[in-house]
Design a protein around this nucleic acid. Structure first.
Lengths: 324, 324
DNA sequence: TTGTAGGCGTTATCAC
DNA sequence: GTGATAACGCCTACAA
């Protein structure tokens, strides 16, 4: 159980520690034979490089911190996949921290990343207020995914457009009384709501907005109230798929059929909506593409620290299904 | 952007480095006033403890490695929640790595954890063969979640019982021709299948087993074949909820109604099945409880490294819904 | 209660 | 090509 160190390998192989180090990073300055020999000895001894020590000693930028807001929301799994796809190839190491559904652990997650001295942070789904976020953007390079942040690199999907697509789709289907179940208001996540309102106004329709949450069951309760009320709308547009499924849950409870008794539209095109079972019309924000882009930006930033803020925007698309 | 170190804080506060270290870990041997003063200086200077250096220098066991097999499967989010609940309280630091849906990244994930010199690993959903796994259990303390491993601490749900519950449930509902869509065969995950077969045999019914996968869409294709074949079963029991949803997807495509044209049962009680929309009958494996238990075991093991292997088993329960 | 010295396992910078 | 030697930032005795 006692750890084998570089010194051990060096001693047994009959070389200096420095050579072992070089051999394991296949750097220049070590002949193929000695390299092979060193690696063989290391293998026999069960040597495993100590990344902690390497991080401390080295000055190379090779670790990327990743913050994912909520593992229960599959969009973050998609984003992670995208990130990993490119960082794996670039040989960068990832340090992961995660928040929670309520969004109360942003600070904790970022703080942990900083204590681990990551060279840059890719943060997906941050909800902490701009004011607090500024304290971080001044201390570390940050690539924000989904959330638009001034003073940081950003990768996000055009939420205003996405919401407009969804709303227009409903209007074209003849709906005039539409409720938007919004996410809890927070800096950087107001575009979907704005897109909805603008689209409604464009057709001189009154936008109805109800504040929702990121929790499916909470939205279910909210939807129950809406559906049981006197002025039940003919369509509901939810800020994301989780919330939309909450609406579907409520409908199932009341014996209502999506697409018939009420139109429902979500946002994210997660596997929740993809399923023919739910048949949820949604807006595809392409999570894995966002992830890939974010990682690209992070690598670019590491190469060139002083260039201006990088902003990449992707265009969402509407995915019509049976629920509308 | 240049990092503030302990030495900086010490200099400004007019004390030694050691004192700063003690103050930040609120250890004995530092008066309340100096402590306060040191912390104040640190705050002003924007000092942040360097966990990398601390890990390297210290000998205390305070980091736990966590491996989660697949972020797209919500059961792992549940398990993570459970783990976090207890490690947060115990003040332990988590290092996270994740695999993928195919299960091809187990080695990579464990290896990264080892390179980070975690003191113990909690691994959920390992699929690598026993033979390979042994190389790890001999090098590091391992708490295996879901998977039963000899020579390591284990926390798992009684899968044989769970599968029996599900199968018996179907039989009681009058089904005699039942297909079990199994997970890809691998060490440590054969109990659900065995539970199914045993329950069928107990009633002198012929068990039909089809090999499935961990991917929802792949199972959808498999289910399509089964449902279109001449001898369509009256019920399908899938190895987990993801797979069960794949079956539901196939049914939706064929216009079949779950619970009417075909009974479907899943496993995990993830939010996929919880939803009234899917109404999927399932077996509740209680992920967060598994996570909590695993973390408890890990802490116990750190305290007492030499005790015999700890094995904790939980009892799953059947959750009947409309799909059966 | 406080300060000093040595070490954790690497990487980086030199000479050889 | 190869091998000493000084960092890296902190912890942990031990001495004061």
């Amino acid at each position: 159980m006692q750890t084998v160190t570089m010194a051990d390998v060096a001693r047994v192989a009959g070389v200096s520690r420095a050579l072992v180090s070089l051999a394991y990073r296949d750097a220049y300055g070590v002949s193929p034979e000695t390299r092979e020999n060193i690696l063989a000895v290391g293998r026999k001894l069960g040597y495993r490089p100590n990344r902690v020590a390497a991080q401390l000693a080295g000055k190379k930028q090779l670790t990327i911190g990743v913050f994912l807001q909520d593992l229960h929301n599959e969009i973050f799994a998609d984003i992670y996949d995208g990130i990993r796809e490119v960082t794996d190839q670039a040989g960068k190491h990832l340090v992961l921290t995660v928040g929670d559904t309520v969004g109360s652990k942003d600070v904790e997650g970022l703080e942990t990343l900083l204590e681990n001295r990551v060279d840059i942070i890719i943060a997906a789904g941050l909800t902490l207020p701009d004011r607090l976020l500024k304290k971080y953007t001044s201390r570390v390079r940050l690539v924000s995914v989904s959330r638009l942040v001034t003073g940081a690199d950003c990768v996000y999907s055009d939420n205003h457009l996405g919401a407009t697509l969804a709303t227009t789709h409903l209007i074209e289907r003849g709906h005039r009384d539409i409720v938007f179940i919004a996410n809890p208001p927070s800096d950087g996540y107001l575009d979907r709501r704005a897109g909805f309102e603008d689209a409604m106004h464009a057709d001189s329709l009154p936008p109805r907005v109800v504040e929702g949450s990121y929790s499916r069951v909470e939205v279910e309760q909210i939807a129950l109230q809406i559906l049981k009320s006197a002025d039940r709308p003919s369509a509901i547009f939810a800020h994301n798929d989780q919330a939309a499924m909450g609406v579907m849950d409520a409908m199932a409870e009341l014996g209502l059929t999506p697409g018939v008794d009420l139109a429902v539209v979500g946002y994210d095109n997660s596997s929740l909506s993809k399923s023919p079972v739910s048949g949820l019309t949604t807006v595809d924000a392409r999570g894995s593409e966002l992830g890939r882009l974010a990682a690209d930006v992070a690598l670019e930033r590491l190469e060139n620290p002083d260039q201006a803020d990088i902003v990449r925007q992707t265009e969402p698309t509407l995915v019509p299904r049976s629920s509308s």
